[in-house]
Simulated scan of single mutants.
Amino acid sequence: MNQPLVAVSTDVRQFDNYTWHAAPQQYLDAAISVADVFPLLVPSFGERLDLESLLARVDGVMVTGSKSNVHPSLYGAEATEADGPYDEARDSTTLPLIRMAIERGVPLLAICRGIQELNVALGGTLASEIQEQEGRLDHRAPVSDDQNERFAIRQPVSIKPGSCLAGIFGAGEVMVNSVHRQAVDRLGDRLQVEAVAQDGTVEAVSVINARAFAVGVQWHPEYWAKSDDASARVFKAFGDAARDHAAARGGRLAAAE
């Protein structure tokens, strides 16, 4: 079977006197090498894009992490410089893309910023600078120029029994590389908690009664997907869901001919 096409979110960045729509290589590499899918970058042009047509042609959606944060106005909060940087062009693209993917039953994997976009897209809110809240751990990366150190697997999360992730990992704890300063606050409509950190921070969610795989994780499985079994399992499950969708879509197209 040919590799399923998977739509991938992009950040809007300014450098070399150009405006770029880009995604980090780790996500694309994990998609190709571990999920065995073909990543297709979606430019962040918001309502100028025909997302319905896109979703009729792809077999998955992956929403990546990013340095930027979802704009607070999208969940009823006041935007401050401290909560930035922002990427409103990305927001205008990913939030409707997430909602449409869920409604169409297109497999969805949302990572780091992605889980926050998923939560906001479904009506939830975000908490900022959670390391400053009483009883919360510091989930930020250590200060280092070494990316391997910054993204080291160091934090246990508890997988909810009977959840989608329990089917991937089994119930109990799994070690992850969670690196963030914002987190899910009020849970969005149709979402359920899949995993939590030791301090109760939501580390994974899934869409209730989703027609296909629809999971968000706050950690970074893309970084070690080729060497860490737990990280690989997330991408393999997503890839399997994309292949199932491709097979079903191919069957529907054949029946319509």
Results as ranks from 00 to 15, higher is better:
Y18M: 14
A89D: 14
S73L: 14
L28R: 05
V42F: 04
L51F: 09
L165I: 06
V34R: 02
E52I: 00
S68K: 02
H245V: 08
Y27H: 10
E129S: 14
L126K: 03
L253P: 02
V143K: 14
D244H: 10
N17T: 00
P24T: 10
V58Q: 04
K236V: 12
L40I: 06
S144K: 12
H71Q: 03
W224K: 04
S92A: 15
G65C: 08
D240G: 00
E52H: 10
V176G: 03
D11K: 11
G216H: 06
V37S: 05
L49G: 05
V174R: 05
N69S: 14
S206R: 08
V34Y: 02
C164E: 13
L40S: 03
S128D: 09
E173H: 12
S66F: 10
R186I: 09
T10N: 07
R252M: 08
T201D: 03
F169E: 04
P96C: 03
D229Y: 09
F169S: 02
V34T: 05
A141F: 11
L5A: 10
R136P: 01
L253V: 13
G46I: 02
A241G: 07
R243I: 06
T94P: 01
V234G: 04
T64V: 15
V234T: 03
Y27Q: 07
G162Y: 13
W20P: 05
L191F: 06
S33W: 11
S9D: 06
S73G: 11
P142E: 13
Q182E: 15
A89C: 02
